[in-house]
């Protein structure tokens, strides 16, 4: 065996190891999700019996019925939809307007105000949550969905994201439209807004990912069960059931994931863009 053949053999071994690692990681990534789905389809009495049935032989949908009897899951679902949709719509409006202004309009103090926006991105939620809790209480909004929605209607990060997008659009288009007599708002709404649709989609998906899954603020702000969002509802279900009917809890978990999976299937591109869009490039 000469040296060349040896390197070729080595390369093959290395490549095989590489593929092996990728497949192993895929199994680890997907395994817990598969276990969750397949166990949610087993009878409650069998849900903790090992070995797990990775592919359920006789899938039972009874857990999916039971979970609606155990907790007001439909109500939680509606609550989560209300919170998530209103925050998305709110941020699409506020962040698009402010992002456009910071990118395209000259006004006194623009640089300083934008720097202030950027600085607030460093502030962790924990360091503002106590006063926000007090503000919400003073407004009489304790234990309501509004307590989650109103403080989240604006976003420094969303503004930054939209500004970056508007900055790379050609300025000449707006100047030409101004020459033709368009008002400033018309330049924004008729010329640039439609060009920003991909950025709007990315912002919407980013907000969906964070607020559909949010646990910390609901845990603090919501007390009565009828106001719970899905993550809070699932955790409360687990607490009240103990280990008795794991499969019922898991049915609830799977149901909360379905909207994310459906959205991901149709808009994967914007999920991935949401990650890279934030990386200041």
């Amino acid at each position: 065996m000469n040296g060349y053949a040896l390197t070729v053999a080595w390369r093959r071994v290395l490549r095989g190891i590489g593929i092996g690692i990728l497949v192993l990681a895929a199994i680890v990534a997907f395994g817990p999700l598969l276990w969750t789905i397949s166990t949610s389809l087993r009878l409650p009495a069998e849900s903790f019996s090992n070995p797990p049935q990775w592919i359920p032989l006789r899938p039972q949908l009874s857990n999916y019925v039971a979970v609606f009897h155990q907790i007001p899951l439909a109500q939680f679902f509606v609550n989560s939809v209300i919170v998530t949709v209103l925050i998305i719509v709110g941020q699409l409006v506020t962040c698009t307007l402010s992002g456009y202004a910071f990118a395209m309009i000259r006004f006194r103090g623009r640089g300083a105000i934008f720097a202030l926006f950027l600085a607030t991105m460093m502030v962790p939620l924990q360091s503002t949550i106590i006063p926000v809790f007090i503000i919400i209480r003073e407004l009489g909004l304790s234990d309501s969905l509004a307590a989650l929605i109103i403080p989240a209607l604006g976003s420094a990060f969303g503004t930054f994201l939209m500004r970056q997008y508007f900055l790379q659009l050609p300025r000449e288009l707006g100047e030409a439209a101004r020459m033709d007599g368009a008002s400033q708002f018309q330049v924004f709404s008729l010329v640039y807004l439609r060009m920003a649709v991909p950025a709007l989609a990315t912002l919407a998906i980013l907000n969906f990912s964070s607020f559909w899954a949010e646990f910390y603020r609901p845990q603090i702000f919501l007390q009565s069960q009828q106001n719970f969002t899905l993550p809070l509802g699932i955790v409360s279900l687990q607490g009240s059931l103990g280990t008795g009917s794991v499969s019922v809890v898991l049915a609830g978990v799977v149901l909360t994931m379905i909207p994310s999976i459906v959205l991901f299937a149709f808009a994967q591109r914007y999920f991935l863009e949401g990650i890279t869009a934030g990386s200041f490039r």
């Binding site: 202004a101 006063p131 926000v132 109103i150 604006g154």
Partner: peptide, 29 residues
Amino acid sequence: RREGAFGYAMIGASFALIIVFTLLPIAAS
């Protein structure tokens, strides 16, 4: 000046929300 006024109007909602729910709270904390 009109352009400036338009700029302030456009950032108004975001700025107000950030003042009330981030800047004031961090100072209050």
